[in-house]
Simulated assay, not measured.
Amino acid sequence: MKKIAQKSMIALMLFGIGTGYAFSEQGRKNANTKQEATHEHSFLKPEPPTVKIALLLDTSNSMDGLINQAKSQLWDIVNQFTYAKCRNEGRPGLKIALYQYGNNDLSSQEGYIQQVLGFSGDLDEISAKLFSLTTNGGEEYCGQVIHQSLQQLDWGKNPDDLKMVFIAGNEPFTQGRKNFREAVLHAKERGVIVNTIFCGDYNLGIQTQWQEGARLAGGEYMAIDHNRQVVHVKTPYDEIIIRLNKRLNNTYVSYGTKGAERMAVQVEQDAEAMDLQEAVAVKRAVSKSSAYYNNAGWDLVDASSSDDFDLARIKKETLPESLRDKSDSEIRMFLDEKRKERQDIQEEIQQANAKRQTYLNEVQKSETGELEKAILEAIKKQAAAKDLYWE
């Protein structure tokens, strides 16, 4: 009986040791796994922040100058972002939304307000929407359009994003049923900075509460001459950049049900910019040579640059006819050639633009527009809080 008890005791001791070892070993494995995960995570760079800009533009009768400035100076703003950097060495994303308000052609039930475009990084789409704007009378309800932009737009929850409203107009900021103070304070609570741009005399904008709207929201108050025409200086490099832009367009390969349509929009927006002024077409071409001009939604070259691109998912009947009968390997080779061609042309545009900027500096002519200057000054000032800076 004593021997049985001794054997039982020994078995229990061995079981305990084995179990302890098993738990200890599993613990070491868990610790190692956790350590490996932490080690792996430490190599992952955080996603760069996005600058989200909601442009709220007064499109009443007196605002033709403002709309023309927005059309022509969009590309200057985009081009400035090519010099923006994050502390993690990446470049911030850029998304722009567009509202119009104060136009009699809009619904009175909606407060003469329309969301023209939600947040988008598609530069052709943004340009097309700006060129679609026309002016016509109306009541300008600043508080209400700010409120609607807060409710309707997807501002996201990333605390590192820089979220900004720029509202431009020339009537009292106090008009409309929605109290502007409530609207701008709500924006501030949501981490959205409201910047106000009064189109007219600086002191008149203060008297009509435009400055107060910005102050309450932690933004900037600015006054501009919306009818001022920017004097563009012709340079020896303009024609070079425009010719390169035409070659650049030939590197795009449409796909999908709307690919051909979107390619037509690209050409159409080139023409719109040229009709406005040759210098605007030049600046648009420079934007098209930057990383911010990405058309992965309809261009196979941009799409194929993504890590998760799968050519097998592309329906060949939506490709240009010249590619439909080619094998996957032939299409990939073709895309590689187009990508290299595009990169070379974009580099040539950048080099020509650098010489263009040097020329402009030498003749001491400024091409800065009123709206562009106001927006960029506010962005650069407020970006510092998000660890964004300009080279």
Rank of each mutant, 00 (worst) to 15 (best):
M1T: 06
M9N: 05
G20W: 04
A37P: 10
H41Q: 13
P48C: 13
I53Q: 07
L57K: 07
T59D: 10
D64F: 00
G65Q: 11
I67G: 03
S72R: 12
Y83W: 11
K95D: 09
K95G: 03
A97M: 05
Y99W: 03
G102E: 07
G118Y: 00
S132A: 13
G138Y: 06
C142A: 13
I146K: 07
I146W: 09
H147A: 11
Q148L: 06
L150G: 09
W155N: 03
W155G: 00
D161G: 14
G169M: 14
G176I: 03
V184H: 04
V194S: 01
V194G: 01
Q207F: 05
G213T: 05
G218S: 03
I224E: 04
R228H: 08
V231L: 12
Y237D: 01
R247E: 15
N250E: 15
Y252S: 02
V253T: 06
V253W: 03
S254C: 00
G256V: 10
T257D: 11
E261N: 00
A264P: 00
V282P: 03
K283F: 04
N295T: 10
A296C: 06
R313C: 08
L319G: 07
P320S: 14
F334C: 13
E341I: 00
E341S: 05
R342D: 03
Q350L: 09
T358F: 07
I375E: 06
K386F: 07
W390I: 14
